[in-house]
Simulated assay, not measured.
Amino acid sequence: MVVASPNSILGERIIPIDLPMIDLSAEKSMVIKLIVKACEEYGFFNVINHGVPHDIISKMEEVGFDFFAKPMEQKKLVALGNPFGYGCKNIGFNGDMGEVEYLLLNANAPSIPNDSSNFSSSVSAYTEAVKELACEILELMAEGLGVPDTSIFSTFITQLDNDSLLRFNHYPPKDCKDRDNSNSYNVGFGEHSDPQILTILRSNDVAGLQISLQHGVWNPVTPDPAAFCVNVGDLLEVMTNGRFVSVRHRAVTNSYKSRMSVAYFGAPPLDACIVAPSVMVTPNRPSLLFKPFTWAEYKKVTYSLRLGDSRIDLFKNCTQIE
């Protein structure tokens, strides 16, 4: 287990990394090849020329920062029913004692009450655009894996009763008392993997995301304002029979500037059965690594465990061939 202190974390190695950068406007077969390779090796990649208009992104970021700039008493009024709405709390457990301010919304209706700043319309336009991007990427993934029905993954998040989320995370800049130590940082959101199918992440041009490709090693990711960061979720690892990897990651506050990240979590309906298609059973993976389950079952486990605890291992198929 990695143990954290408020400013620095002992026993860790910090090794910067450049994630694969994939130009979605490039030749399709090459794009597919690069996406599959990135999902197998990193679980994360960046995309440019993604088709999401700049004005839609900028309006979303503007209303997001405006929201977090409001007085605390106003933000706390945005209570949309558990688990949605505004929150500000310690995540806690497993070295993730950072403070994070957030706004969690249903991606199918990303609105807030008493909206006087065009928040809902701006965020709805953004959500629809990144949902289309997520579908495009999922279909390229399916084609690259040789799945006959290339919509097999994207169909989950286009169904009307999908359980997708949109989450704004706001991280304050590093405290003044820490500025004399340029190597120090605070954990803003602790170590975890995303339980859904796919995440499309956007952040302002401020560093903070770190991924862990090896236990005890954290790889800071350089932000790119022109790109979206895409990562594999637990469900996609299951549906690719372990070929794609859902990688643990965290967010740290090590900047003099506020960081806001906006994550679209593509998720299926609660009753959707999660299982790898038969084409994912190959000589290299001659059996299903995970037993079938519903998203509701997995979601229940996700919320019953501490952040950082392994969830996906609980659904491994004990009868698989070694």
Results as ranks from 00 to 15, higher is better:
Val3Arg: 04
Glu101His: 00
Val130His: 11
Phe168Thr: 12
Arg167Gly: 00
Asn186Val: 13
Ile22Cys: 07
Phe153His: 06
Lys300Ile: 06
Arg248Gln: 15
Ile157Met: 04
Val252Asn: 13
Glu101Arg: 10
Ile197Phe: 13
Gly43Ala: 02
Thr302Pro: 10
Lys316Pro: 06
Ser154Arg: 10
Ala272Thr: 04
Asn114Pro: 00
Ser154Asp: 08
Val230Gly: 11
Phe290Thr: 04
Leu160Glu: 15
Val217Tyr: 04
Ala267Gln: 05
Pro277Tyr: 04
Ala276Val: 00
Glu61Cys: 08
Leu145Asn: 11
Asn317His: 08
Asn108Ser: 13
Leu165Gly: 06
Glu297Cys: 01
Ser212Ile: 06
Asn49Cys: 02
Glu99Ile: 02
Ile197Asn: 03
His50Pro: 04
Asn241Phe: 02
Gln214His: 05
Asn219Lys: 05
Asn49Tyr: 07
Gly92Ala: 11
Ile200Trp: 14
Ile152Asp: 01
Gly188Asn: 05
Ser122Ala: 15
Lys75Cys: 10
Asp309Ala: 01
Thr294Gln: 12
Leu24Met: 15
Asp115Asn: 02
Phe244Ile: 07
Thr282Ser: 02
Pro16Ala: 15
Glu128Cys: 07
Glu297Ala: 13
Phe68His: 06
Gly81Cys: 14
Trp218Asn: 15
Phe153Glu: 08
Ser117Thr: 13
Asn114His: 15
Asn82Phe: 09
Arg167Trp: 00
Val221Thr: 08
Phe84Met: 02
Phe315Arg: 03
Trp295Thr: 00
Pro53Trp: 10
Thr127Tyr: 03
Thr302Asp: 02
Ala226Val: 00
Val275Thr: 14
Val36Gln: 02
Leu289Asn: 10
Met260Ile: 15
Pro225Gly: 03
Lys174Pro: 00
Gly144Lys: 09
